[in-house]
Design a protein around this nucleic acid. Structure first.
Length: 435
DNA sequence: TCTGGGGTCCTAGGACCC
DNA sequence: TCTGGGGTCCTAGGACCC
């Protein structure tokens, strides 16, 4: 085995990672504003009220699995009086910013990994101080934001993930667990392979067939062996379980390589005008995201999907790619391109569709890349778009939009049980009644 | 009736070139 | 009997994550 530049001499400050994540995040957000939900089984559904995406511990105890379609739970929801919420991303995003903001004040180097998780660089802490620091962190975040969190610590990101998993399982504990040289082998031997970060269903099955059922057994395999049988990703995971850090903390936000916006419709759609509205709306949304990272894109892919669950299985995905003459961040360029793409697509496949979306690719920072001698972007147009972005930031998404985005929204999915935008909309603020 | 949305990385194999 | 060979780039698809 050969690992590039691995420094095997003992270091003064061996790296130490933390993983902080919010418990049952979307459910916890709802509970902050409706404390009566606290002991009840609660679930939050995905867009279009499709699948379960967050469960309270009570709901987990009822054996409700992540990702099950809501319609399969109807009887159980009634029988067990389960509280159901449509997803409310305005609320969850805002609560996420509060958690991350609090965290940034308490822990210096952090990498926001997802809406409800962040990695921390805890290198340099004295081992004795680490646990009390962690316990204090967990307590403070909950006090400041109302969101319960847990923290795992270890000498690699993968070990911190394992530790966090254990911290969360231990309901009586402090919400903190640390893996160190003393307990590592024992902990990993108890840890199922399919729960390791980076190992999904498919690989878990293959590893089981090779007699690897827990994390310790995987950590004992060599890099070349695993690379040959699987790939570099899995081989790196084994090293990380041994305590050799492969993944670093990424404190600087990287430019996205693709930006996708897509939605399922409330019903099957056949008419071109509705599809056009949906595609225009998604395009405008995608370009706004593009602008928010000060980037330009050169291609847009339009896709339409029929019902992917119909039996027998048949093709359901159709797409087409349009390349712009020059990279742009102007919504109007992309609306034109998107409409052109949709027209082609719809003409060749006039079917009943369930979902539509757009993907931007070949993204680069604005001003970098090719020098554009023939740019048509005039300063006036740029200023107009900036005003539009500002209005939408201040008054809410979609306040100001292009006519092609439409107003009938016949294609919108349902969200029957959406809670209010407690924190992001003046008219929906929670009301405190004095007694 | 009914089944989410948004990402990344890796690899194999084909296209193409010399 | 006998198809060239090697390098690079691109893409599709599969795997994973939350």
């Amino acid at each position: 085995m050969f690992i590039q530049n691995q420094d095997l001499t003992p270091q003064l400050n061996p790296p130490q990672f933390g993983l902080l994540d919010c418990n049952n995040f979307y459910v916890s957000c709802e509970r902050v504003f409706q404390p009566t939900l606290n002991k009840a089984p609660v679930i939050v559904l995905s867009n279009n009220d499709g699948c379960v995406v967050s469960r309270s511990n009570e709901a987990k105890r009822l054996d409700i699995k992540m990702g099950v379609p809501a319609f399969k739970l109807k009887a159980l929801i009634q029988a067990q009086k389960i509280k159901v919420f449509s997803s409310n991303y305005a609320l969850y995003n805002d609560m996420s910013q509060r958690v991350m903001g609090a965290l940034a004040e308490l822990a210096p180097n952090l990498e926001i990994y997802s809406i409800d998780e962040a990695f921390l660089d805890l290198t340099g802490f004295h081992p004795n101080d680490l646990s009390s620091f962690g316990e204090n962190l967990v307590k403070t975040i909950q006090q400041w934001t109302g969101i319960p969190v847990s923290l795992g610590m270890g000498s690699t990101k993968t070990l911190a993930k394992v530790a966090d998993h254990i911290a969360k399982k231990n309901k009586m504990g402090s919400g903190v667990f640390k893996i160190n040289a003393t307990n590592r082998e024992h902990v990993l031997a108890q840890f199922k392979i399919e729960d390791v970060w980076g190992i999904g269903k498919n690989w878990a099955t293959k590893l089981n067939q090779r007699g690897i059922v827990n994390a310790y057994e995987l950590s004992q395999r060599t890099y070349p062996e695993l690379q040959k049988q699987f790939n570099k990703t899995l081989a790196s995971t084994a090293l990380e379980l041994q305590g050799i850090p492969i993944h670093k903390i990424e404190t600087i936000k990287k430019l996205k390589k693709e930006i996708m916006v897509s939605r399922s419709f409330g019903r099957m759609l056949t008419d071109y005008d509705s599809l056009r509205e949906a595609i225009a709306t998604h395009t405008a949304q995608a370009i706004q995201r593009l602008r928010s990272q000060h980037a330009v894109a050169k291609t847009i892919t339009i896709f339409l999907q029929t019902n992917r669950f119909q039996q027998p299985k048949q093709p359901y995905h159709y797409d087409t790619l349009i390349e712009l003459p020059i990279p742009s961040q102007d919504t109007r360029d992309f609306l034109k391109a998107a409409e052109q793409g949709l027209k082609q697509l719809y003409k060749s496949k006039p079917l009943a569709y369930k979902k539509a979306g757009v993907i931007l690719r070949e993204i680069s920072s604005k001003g970098k890349g090719q020098i554009d001698l023939f740019s048509t972007a005039d300063p006036k147009a740029v200023a107009q778009i900036e005003v539009l972005d500002r209005i939408n930031r201040t008054f809410g998404k979609g306040t100001c939009r292009f006519a092609v985005e439409g107003y009938t929204k016949a294609w919108l999915g349902q969200s029957r049980d959406r809670s209010r935008a407690y924190t992001t909309c003046w008219s929906e603020l929670p009301i405190v009644q004095a007694k």
